[in-house]
Write a protein that binds this DNA or RNA. Structure first.
Lengths: 232, 232
DNA sequence: CTGTTCATCTCGTAA
DNA sequence: TTACGAGGTGAACAG
């Protein structure tokens, strides 16, 4: 990765049009051709362009170096008024990449393997059980052997309640006369506001699953003793 | 801005949980406390945290320096196995910030000032004209003096068509018997696929406005002759 | 302070 | 290639 610290001004045109007045900033040029211009505030770059661009170098009428990055649809023009540092660094050629933990698929798998979470004697029938309204995440049998439908989310919202309602309605349309109606459950690590009261209104049961139960890697330990800290 | 190039591994827990295996990466520490970890690919940081965190420094059991960044809800732990470079750079203390051009408000203003864009003799009645379905961007009179409703977007999508339809329907509910029905127009710089046929289906007129017409700053010139270029 | 909408959204995945 | 939905979405703005 090439890192440039420079007084620069930038114009971008493409999906939008922006102008960045002259100031000292950091410019990141990455191995895949991606370029981003960072100020000293915030995580998002002020301007950026992904890989797959053509990089041209020229000089403007005041003698400043000008970099342009072009794709078919976009263009960034960086005028380098004053380059303070320009360095190249060898990073990982094959970035291992970010591994997510505590994901919804993991939670699905864990609940499928641990149906007793919903109650003693409960068993799993099937994951991704197809209903007339689409596949419901999990179909389980309660301690009386009656089926219940489970919608699984990492974070449940009001939309999750409507979703399980659609599945339950579709399932109950096919229930035989006299058989007990299928009930709905939403299982999640976290429930957003308004979800709880909406669930109560529709008779949907909510089950909270602590993420520690189904994560592959244990959550990090507390900071070590004797550490120095600074707040901002 | 402090720039660190280092072999590092990272764990994050908060809104999600992620693990980043050991590899050489760039770490950006910004003036406002924001921190981001970049690989040599893509514009998005692998891990990041905004301002307003507490930064602690400690040492793990293998003697490696460990940085943690904590807020009430999130935590990043960076293990610095091998620091290759660590530099500090003075950037703009007051970032001028990104100025946008060719925005939707600009387009609204320009169309309000140039209703003849829709046809000879057309005039503007009002911007943000309130209907029973919310405010429509622009209400104009055509050359016959009949009102038409205009929805303005930088990029129009199918949703824009449904939106103008709601406004037009609300307006026509209040039209006197015998008066002509109000028609709908969508004006935009760009129309996404499916938008055109949907507009035809509902009888909505589409008007394309070249961005050069209403931009404050002219689009950048073509690359200078004699420039060197490299494609990726 | 929360909630809603916009973004040069980015990024994945399925059709 | 395009359309659709999720994101550790972030950021601006209204209530």
């Amino acid at each position: 990765m090439r890192l440039i610290i420079a007084e620069c001004s930038v114009t971008y045109t493409g999906r939008g049009d922006t102008i960045l007045p002259r100031a000292a900033r950091a410019i990141l040029l990455k191995r895949d051709g991606a370029v981003s211009i960072h100020s000293d505030f915030g995580n998002k770059p002020l301007n950026y362009m992904g890989k797959g661009n053509v990089h041209s170098v020229s000089t403007d009428d005041e003698g400043a170096t000008v970099w342009t990055f072009d794709t078919r649809k976009e263009s960034i023009r960086i005028v380098l008024h004053d380059v303070m540092t320009d360095s190249d660094h060898l990073l990982a050629e094959l970035e291992p990449g970010l591994a997510r933990d505590g994901t919804e698929p993991q939670l699905q798998q864990w609940l499928s393997d641990n149906p007793q979470t919903f109650g003693v004697g409960w068993t799993t029938v099937r994951r991704e059980f197809l209903t007339g309204a689409g596949p419901v995440d999990l179909l389980v049998l309660d301690d009386k052997g009656d089926p219940q439908a489970v919608e699984i989310k990492r974070i449940a919202t009001a939309a999750s309640i409507y979703q399980i309602n659609r599945y339950v309605a579709a399932l109950n349309e096919e229930v035989e006369e006299g058989d007990p109606a299928i009930a709905g459950i939403v299982a999640a690590v976290e429930f957003r506001p308004k979800t709880v009261e909406l669930a109560a209104k529709f008779g949907v049961r909510l089950v909270t699953i602590p993420r520690a139960l189904f994560m592959n890697v244990a959550p990090p330990v507390a900071p070590a003793a004797g550490s120095t800290s600074s707040s901002l």
